[in-house]
Design a protein around this nucleic acid. Sequence first.
DNA 1: AAGCGGCTCAACCGCATGCCC
DNA 2: CGGGCATGCGGTTGAGCCGCT
Length: 313
Amino acid sequence: MGKSTYYDGVDELRKGPWKLKEDKKLSAYIQENGHGSWRSLPQKAGLRRCGKSCRLRWINYLRPDIKRGQFTKYEEQKITQLHAFVGNRWSVIAAHLPNRTDNEIKNYWNTYIKKKLTKMGIDPITHKRKQSFSNSSSNEAIMNSSVIDHIAQWESTRLEAEARLGKLPNMVSGQYNAGEGSLMRPSFDILKAWQSGYANIRNNNGGAQPYTLSSLESAVSKLAMRESSYKTAAGTSGHSDSNVDKCDNNLWLSQIDDMVIDEDNRVLSLEDGNGGDNVVFSCNEGEWNLEEQNYWNVKISNPETLYSVVFNK
DNA sequence: AAGCGGCTCAACCGCATGCCC
DNA sequence: CGGGCATGCGGTTGAGCCGCT
């Protein structure tokens, strides 16, 4: 067996459950010095553990910001929803549940939620109803599977893009054309999440007020509150439904066709495009505005884990 | 009280990924 | 560019606990 990457040079390394004394040593050392290199930490802290074990103990148990104890209904719901979108990517799920560790969430899923879903007749892997349960009364608790599939696809991309965004503090600018893989820079994944394979994204070097996606999300929330002010005449012609994936007469944000970004890859406007210049959102003096609303009612929602912009006929 | 089985969750293991030289 | 190292991640394990017989 080769050397572990966490091997710290101590021949007799302890394994198994941590003792209170060890916990105290580790906590005291990290709080005073930070963890630095995990490999060298055990020796410096006077612990006969490998660095990997120390890291795990700190991250999953000793960290002061960890929330312990029973999961709330809200957390349970969120885990279930997120799992439907991203699968067993516990770290991604944990990132959406402040102060919970991926290990804790994974355990909770395996010991509780998974079984609960199975009992309800839902496949915990696909999150779809099992055939034998298709006529049961539990149906009401479950979203239409085609809808959840649609949302799942989009949200999965978005979450992934968000996760990557966090690792990319310096975004680059440039042009992305759908289908041209060589031009696909990592920072464009965040935009890909929005255009979901349909949009053309073009660069705009104009001096407009820049907006990040998170600020767009917040703007979307604000617009939701002002929803009623955007009621307009419905049913006017002028918009083709081609390449639009409709769910109960709704057009989802993933169908946005055109997106303008600035040098820093911040979103300046979203358009429903469709061959024309039907700007749906644009940035103006720090406000996201609806410009073209002559034939669409717009409903914007921002539930806990899913936000969407829905255009109703 | 003892034996058993199921459950929980901390901890481990191995692989993947990213960074640095 | 390749290799080595550090860290992160997800699957699995097993000790301890609890309830049932």
